[in-house]
Design a protein around this nucleic acid. Structure first.
Lengths: 232, 232
DNA sequence: ACCTGAACACCGTTCAAGT
DNA sequence: ACCTGAACACCGTTCAAGT
């Protein structure tokens, strides 16, 4: 049974959240670059310019989509587990966005620290750092270390999954030419999609161990991981 | 003395490298999103469509610009220093691109593993991993760990430096509202531009220590950093 | 081989107008 | 308040044509 034209227009007047949800759907299907106000309007059964009544520009709409991604990741920080374990789950949750929304994941890399929603996410994350026992200085350091890795690794995984749209089409096999690129061809098998869970796990565990080590050594007498004493 | 119109057209016929260099200059000045074939053509004193004689599309041109960035970073891997030290310098060199070409740095995050130039860079990098004593499996793991952090932290630094063009304008001071966001306002001072060197240094040193520890424990008897024995 | 110029099928956004 | 429609100033890219 064929779907009727403009079904969304029947159901309700537009609202920002529904618009963002539709935008995310379009991004998941066709990619971030292919999302346009015109296409999104058509999907919603409305002229493109109607959207400007709900968002002052496209950037604001993308911020709204980013907020939806944060909604998916943030609950991982909740629960009764020890703080460091909750942080671990939070990092995995963000990385999971790269798997479930590979074409939207860019938003997390490109558009952060903007909306109240994003601030609330960071507040929750940094509160968990504090619960774990980090002071503000080391919260910043490990936030950047873990956050940088999670975002960078996520972006790299998208690349591995070959979802970058206007990419020069290079098949994975091109990297297996041991004649010209012996080291690359040696390592690439370990970066296959089937290995990416292991790769990410290893990275994030290494970082969490460093965090644990810092907390331990701090308990034993206020020393940094490198053994230097802090003095002002 | 005012510059004459269309100076580049006088000097020589176009060539890909010169086009990419001009493109990088435009990106540095006006941002990646603002680069268009038309503007680039005008800068070079040529119709936009002339560029298609040298690149089959815009993506190929951007790959060429990316190659220029790699040219800047790769020499850091050379020298007589121990391999791990050369890797350290390489990571810093990539991060320096985020500082010297903040608006072009996205290319490193978004468009990798494509051109022969990029393959040669990775070959050099992975050869240095091997020189340090890593097998292919752990080269992949630490490559992703360090590479992910360097790219993710670089992208985050661009955000801190507020160079994202269509950003919802949120001043840094908004994050200092201890009423609503006590943890964020506590940590943000440590993420100021003046602190970013320290933040990056701390992250990359933590990773290099993990690499060193892996190499040491491997010398002591084929154990992973977590003390598990490897068995096929 | 290298470049031009018109054209096509798109963009985001403004603005005046409708209901 | 919410949406339309025409218009503006752009895009990347194709194509036939010039030299």
């Amino acid at each position: 049974m064929p779907v009727r034209r403009k079904p969304a227009a029947i159901t309700a007047p537009l609202n920002p959240r529904a618009i963002c949800a539709a935008a995310l759907k379009l991004i998941d299907a066709d990619g971030l670059e292919s999302l346009s106000m015109r296409k999104l309007g058509t999907t919603l059964g409305v002229e493109a310019m109607a959207l400007y009544h709900h968002f002052s520009n496209k950037g604001e709409l993308l911020d709204g989509v980013t907020d939806l991604l944060l909604d998916e990741a943030e609950p991982a920080l909740d629960g009764d587990a020890p703080p460091l374990e909750r942080l671990r789950r939070g990092f995995h949750a963000v990385r999971n966005i790269a798997i479930t929304h590979p074409r939207a994941f860019w938003l997390l890399a490109a558009r952060r620290f903007r909306t109240p929603r994003a601030l609330a996410f960071y507040e929750h994350l940094l509160q968990t750092f504090r619960d774990a026992g980090f002071d503000a200085h080391h919260s910043a350091r490990f936030f950047r270390l873990a956050g940088g890795f999670v975002i960078g690794a996520g972006v790299a995984e998208i690349g591995s999954r070959a979802l970058n749209p206007d990419a020069t089409p290079v098949v994975l096999e091109d990297f297996f030419d041991p004649e010209h690129y012996p080291r690359v061809s040696e390592v690439v098998p370990y970066l296959r999609i089937s290995q990416l869970d292991d790769i990410f796990e290893y990275g994030i565990e290494t970082i969490i161990q460093a965090m644990q080590r810092h907390l331990n050594s701090n308990r034993d007498g206020a020393r940094t991981p490198r053994g230097r004493r802090k003095r002002k």
